[in-house]
Simulated assay, not measured.
Amino acid sequence: MLRYYPARFPGVGVAFTTVDQGNLALHVGDDPEAVLMRRRELEASLGLDAQRFWYMDQIHSTIILDAGADVLTASTASGHPTADGLISPCGDGALAVMVADCLPVLFIASTASGTATAVAHAGRRGLLDGILPDAVERLRAAGGTDVHAWIGPSICGACYEVPRDMSAEAELQLPGITTSTRTGTPALNLPAAAAAQLRALGVRVEESGICTLEDKRFYSYRRDNSTGRLAGLLWPVDQDKARNAAQ
């Protein structure tokens, strides 16, 4: 697991899981009991005790919900809300976003009372439709300043081949997103486009630089379309525990 305890935000943990933590998604044909057990083990390993991560039924939309009441009222039969982003205006929610090539983007912002946090699932469609600017706007509307974002492991531009017409359409919507694969075919560079979009909004960005297709520590739908899902995670941490864990 890639785990960080940002010095600027000592009360928040940031992490991206690997295949070592196992599949965390309920929608990929895995045994539901096994998935739930992995989730509980993950929460215990991060010191969450009785707190649980909020997961989503992700549909490549730009829907962002408040963790808490909005999530509870929007939850489906799976127990998860249909959304592609979650925000915790007080920074007290444990938030999860699942991917297997799309971008898991985690946000932390300073507020007068502490922090506000958010997570977003940004695949090609969500990125082009503006889910990341929407998340930044929601954080700032909650009083957030000094917004930081972490872009987790995702497919790189050299690996994300797309049809030529899709490449051209994407470039019209988000100039600079297009690139080429190593063999010269049309491709999209989602991580670079996301980072540029966020920096233009005044967000400080940390990029993992890890390609999920190339690095077998991570799940990749392009490598195996029956694969599991990794999770990008934000959660409130005890500051003393965080300092000890970081040493």
Rank of each mutant, 00 (worst) to 15 (best):
V136D: 13
E137P: 05
R138E: 13
R138T: 13
R138G: 08
L139S: 05
A142P: 04
G144R: 05
G144Q: 03
T145S: 15
D146F: 05
V147S: 07
V147I: 14
H148D: 14
A149K: 04
A149T: 03
A149L: 04
W150V: 07
G152V: 12
P153Q: 12
P153M: 12
P153D: 11
S154F: 07
S154Y: 08
I155M: 10
G157N: 03
A158S: 13
A158K: 10
R164Q: 12
S167K: 08
S167M: 12
A170T: 00
E171C: 01
L174V: 01
L174G: 02
P175K: 12
P175Q: 10
I177K: 01
T178E: 01
T179C: 00
S180D: 07
S180E: 10
S180I: 03
S180L: 14
S180F: 12
T181M: 03
T183W: 07
G184S: 03
G184I: 00
G184C: 01
T185S: 04
P186G: 04
P186K: 03
A187E: 04
L190K: 01
P191R: 07
P191A: 10
P191Y: 05
A192L: 15
A192F: 10
A192G: 08
A193R: 06
A194G: 06
A196T: 13
Q197K: 11
Q197H: 06
R199G: 05
A200V: 06
V203A: 09
R204K: 05
V205N: 01
V205Y: 01
V205C: 02
S208P: 08
L213M: 15
L213R: 13
E214G: 12
F218Q: 04
Y219E: 09
Y219C: 09
S220Q: 12
Y221D: 10
